[in-house]
Write a protein that binds this DNA or RNA. Structure first.
Lengths: 112, 112
DNA sequence: GCAGATTAGTTTGTACTACAAATTTATGTA
DNA sequence: TACATAAATTTGTAGTACAAACTAATCTGC
């Protein structure tokens, strides 16, 4: 019996990378939320450089996946949308980060 | 004058991430070649778990981008396809790796 | 009080692309 | 001669990121 599919050296970690997080736009969102835990919609628009529509659709996907929670309130008279990382989202990001570190880190020694 | 677009803290590095390398299948190919410098087609099929057709089309894209060189010879009577990282491909991978390290590394302290 | 501007988003349409399945081309073999 | 295997390439489909168009509510000048 050969090595089983999962105890790979690292690069194979990419075969089941979380593509929901891997997408650069969402990776930005997740990375911000991982640090600040929660942020409002317009803050993220400014920080990420995404358009409103683009952020809106990525937000929906992350919410559908259970990675973030979206809370819509009114701040005075205006709508105010807050994004917050869920526990599941936090775990998924950690896992993603570890997988990428294996791939990215593994090649380090060969460089320079 | 505000901070110019490029001297971001790190997460914004994702706004111009190299999507050609970012795609997991190609990232695997590039990561292998970055380490071993050259490898043959069937070796990569086995190592990456990609199908022949899938590897073939990713190979074409990396070649078109100038990131790899593809050499087709005959080994005895059978065709034998070798992939080799170009200097440009090497640089692009290093750049990609740095960008990702910024995003991935930046969040490290917040964790645990 | 109503016409136009601004704010805060959502929905829609298009263009791209990853992947698998079908196809190709050549060689070995019964 | 037919059939199987090897080594890929080409084709078709399904999924998706993004921008542009749209919606809905509030503010502002006249």
């Amino acid at each position: 019996m050969e090595t089983t599919k999962d105890d790979s050296t690292g690069i194979d970690a990419l075969n089941d990378i979380d593509r929901l997080i891997h997408e650069p736009a969402r990776l930005m969102i997740m990375a911000y939320l991982y640090v600040v835990d929660s942020a409002d919609f317009l803050f993220l628009v400014r920080q990420t450089g995404l358009t409103l529509g683009n952020l809106s659709s990525h937000m929906s996907k992350l919410e559908a996946a259970g990675y973030i929670e979206v809370e819509k309130k009114f701040k005075g008279k205006k709508p105010h949308t807050m994004l917050r990382l869920t526990g599941e989202g936090h775990d998924a990001f950690r896992k993603y980060r570890q997988s990428m570190k294996q791939v990215i880190g593994e090649t380090s020694e060969a460089a320079q």
